[in-house]
Computed example of a mutant assay.
Amino acid sequence: MSDHLGIAAIPRRRYLVLVMLWAALLLPFISQATAQCTARDVLQNRLKLPTAEQVRTPKAPTASAADIQTWKTIEVGTLAGSFALVGALDAAGCKSGGQAAEILARPAATVSATKTDVELVAVPATELGFEGDTAKLAEIYALAQQLGFQLATAEIGAQLRLQYFEQPIGEFLIVGMEPIRTWGGEPVILNIANGGAGLILIGQDGRADADIPAMSRIVFVRSIKAAPTQGIGEAAAVAHR
């Protein structure tokens, strides 16, 4: 693989300097995030919630992004590059699948230069108006954007993993994002998951014609029109640059 050859070609002294610099950038974050993704810590985080979650009931198809409440607000632009983002996931004990780790290392996985709050929604395809058991990924994206939502970025997906330590067991959230191609050319998107053994970040099929279960919840960014208060819409736009 070309990436391994590139690492081998770095002089030893320069490589050590890069490692030390990376560690220095991660140190403040590591002290806050250590072991937060392990199964035991997830359970403890769940027990700290003030009230039990309400059971999600099916809703009528939405007519606009404004009809769906913000599910979670996260902060992006807190780490200096994608390598620091991957390191923060490791420091928190959040395991990454092979495809997820690979696309986060690709040049397309850019990181915001400024700290920005981003409002997110998590909706199933059925709530967007799709019928049947599955829907094509490209069709879901098209309708979501038509309703006023924006696609997320790989950074938003990774930061959501780092800022959603209380995720319930059995929940898998698809990140509605432009797919990033692996070194082999396969389009991949991210999935925020808790399979029971701890919090993980995995990759999944990002092809336009990929079949997505209609009941699966997909994470999108609110549009500028849907959330103008306190500049959240503008902040989401910055996150997509």
Rank of each mutant, 00 (worst) to 15 (best):
S112G: 07
Q32C: 10
E119C: 06
G203C: 02
E53Y: 14
Q163Y: 00
I180W: 03
L128I: 11
G233H: 00
R12W: 10
Q146C: 07
L79A: 09
Q163E: 01
T153P: 04
E127M: 07
N194M: 12
L25V: 05
V221P: 05
V123I: 14
P124R: 03
G196H: 08
S64G: 13
T70F: 08
R12C: 15
P179E: 03
L190P: 07
G196W: 06
Q32K: 08
V219Y: 07
A9T: 00
R13L: 15
P61H: 14
W22I: 01
L160Y: 02
Q69N: 14
I189D: 00
G6V: 11
S216I: 02
I189H: 00
Q150N: 06
P28R: 02
Q167K: 07
T114P: 04
H4N: 09
A226H: 00
K48G: 09
Q69T: 13
Q36Y: 00
E166P: 06
M20Q: 14
E131P: 03
Q36N: 04
A122R: 02
L21G: 13
A236D: 01
P50A: 05
T153Y: 01
G196I: 11
Q159S: 01
K115P: 04
R14S: 08
L190F: 08
G87V: 15
P58M: 09
T51D: 07
Q159R: 01
E53R: 13
G203I: 01
P168C: 04
A24Q: 05
L104V: 00
L79G: 04
M20V: 12
G148V: 06
R14Y: 04
A125P: 05
L147D: 03
R13Y: 03
M177E: 04
A8R: 13
A235F: 05
E186V: 13
T34S: 12
I192S: 07
A66S: 15
T70E: 13
V19F: 00
S223N: 10
T70S: 09
L21P: 06
L199S: 08
K48H: 14
V111N: 04
L137P: 06
I202L: 12
I180V: 09
P50G: 06
E166S: 15
V19R: 10
G87P: 10
A210S: 12
W183Y: 03
L85T: 13
Q146S: 09
L5W: 00
L143T: 08
A109R: 00
A144F: 04
D3N: 08
I7G: 10
A100T: 12
C94F: 02
I232S: 12
T134H: 10
A23M: 15
G203D: 01
A66C: 11
A236S: 10
L201T: 13
R13F: 02
M1V: 14
Q36F: 08
Y15M: 07
I192H: 11
Q150T: 04
A214F: 15
D117Q: 14
T114C: 07
G129R: 06
D90T: 14
D117I: 00
P124E: 03
G81D: 09
